[in-house]
């Protein structure tokens, strides 16, 4: 099972906001074990999905050159459960992105209903974490494509966001190595 807790991006405005969706299905593993006879989408995995949406929004702002990690949750308020068949719409707004991290406000909606509100702090790993790679670049690019980030992503002026050259380079290197 891959650790994807969003299905795809539907909007991304570079450095400002991102919207992603997560479809909750009864066949998913977490629906069995979390509450027997009461299949709910665990709040922790909803937070993970919001963090993936926000983390990639923050990382995109720096062309994916920073290693972005979720450092802290401010508040996390859930107004009700999410159940099988629900489509969760995650919206993350970047309030402040700087050299050492970012703060973001996130919401989850089920249809028009506000389902959850979460404040998040992301940190960029600094020199104390030298040699720590979060992702293998070519694999990371595949993930971003799968999530359709480059299909929907736009710059502040409305142009399509471009795939950074260092990720394309890693992809070419990988292809050459495979032969």
């Amino acid at each position: 099972m891959r650790w994807f807790w969003i299905d795809r991006f539907v909007e991304l405005e570079s450095g400002r906001r991102a919207v992603a969706i997560k479809n909750v299905a009864l066949a998913e593993e977490q629906m069995d074990g979390y509450g027997p006879f009461l299949p709910l989408m665990p709040a922790s995995l909803i937070i993970e999905g919001l963090a993936q949406t926000g983390g990639l929004l923050v990382a995109e702002h720096n062309d994916f050159t920073e290693r972005v990690v979720l450092a802290k949750l401010g508040k996390a308020v859930f107004h009700g459960p999410a159940v099988a068949g629900d489509t969760l719409t995650y919206t993350v707004v970047a309030e402040n992105i700087q050299a050492d991290g970012a703060i973001c406000k996130a919401t989850s909606h089920i249809g028009d209903r506000l389902h959850a509100e979460v404040d998040m702090v992301f940190a960029h790993l600094d020199d104390r974490f030298q040699g720590v790679d979060l992702f293998e670049p070519a694999e990371f690019l595949r993930m971003l494509r799968l999530l359709r980030m480059f299909d929907v992503g736009r710059t502040e002026t409305g142009e399509k966001i471009k795939i950074p050259e260092h990720l394309l380079h890693a992809e070419r290197e990988e292809a050459a190595a495979i032969g």
Binding site: A71, K72, N96, Q98, G101, A102, I103, V121, A123
Partner: peptide, 21 residues
């Protein structure tokens, strides 16, 4: 330690200032 990052971000926003770490 991570709270200080959060606090600095909030102060910068609240007062519209820049805080060199």
């Amino acid at each position: 330690s991570i709270d200080f990052l959060d606090i600095v971000f909030r102060l910068e926003k609240a007062f519209e200032i820049e805080i060199p770490r």
